[in-house]
Design a protein around this nucleic acid. Sequence first.
DNA 1: CGCCTTTGACCAGCGC
DNA 2: GCGCTGGTCAAAGGCG
Length: 280
Amino acid sequence: MGSSWLDHPSLNLDLNVGSLPFPVDSPKAVLAMESKHVDKKVSIKDKKAIKALEAELVLATEENRKLNEVLTATIASYSAVRKQLIELMNTPHPEGGSRSNLPPGKRRSESLDANMETTSSEGSCKRARDDCKPKVWKLHVRSDPSDTSLVVRDGYQWRKYGQKVTRDNPCPRAYFRCSFAPSCPVKKKVQRSAEDTSILVATYAGEHNHDLRSRPGAPSLRPITAAPDLNSSGSQPEMASLGFQRSLVEHMAFSLSEDPAFKAALATAISGKMLPLRTG
DNA sequence: CGCCTTTGACCAGCGC
DNA sequence: GCGCTGGTCAAAGGCG
């Protein structure tokens, strides 16, 4: 995930963890404004409470500012590393050209898939076949490790057409085709993560050429990460595709709803918003 | 009966 | 060219 998709305007969630959920120039200013109206009614005890809240807000704002700095630095360093990687991949190997520094026995396309799900537009070293590679993205779904079905319920109807045990993962990989529409070119591979068998990794290739009509009663999936294809992310129109944005928003909403820090921050923000009502 | 899963065989790409 | 590997095919059988 490049900073490009993080910077996408439609994806800007304007997160303000640790501060109020509405725009404020300064928490002090807000409290001063509010206290103007209730000043005569508030007791000394209330004033102390307001002071305490004020201090808390200043701390939270400061914390938010620091978190923003850390996030900015992280994105910047990620971009730098990604740029370096792309440069390395485009640089011809000094010792005889086409050989890349892959581990022995590792195929090039495999390696690319494992690292970046790279597809096309990476330079002349790619064969023509790669140029028509479909959009690829991964979805990680938590499931019961004892459940061996390798089924990722995503609303679409899939037909399994193969299963294989791959070299780098003892868990079998299942191959599915979209059977919702006969002409739909989308395929997906589902395999348990080698590190954490409770996680199913679904790799989608291509885009559905039909509407999603999820059947009633179909349980919703629990995505823990939806990592879009990094290399096809180079083209913004693809990034802005509805499917991508939907999965991203679902992923973000899920991540936030599961994040204890976010819950705590939300609770703080709500109580901060409601407190003046109670005192007034 | 139609759709699905299973599973061994086959094919193509890649490294040696 | 050979062997390894991932991806796909297709026949057989199961299930509703």
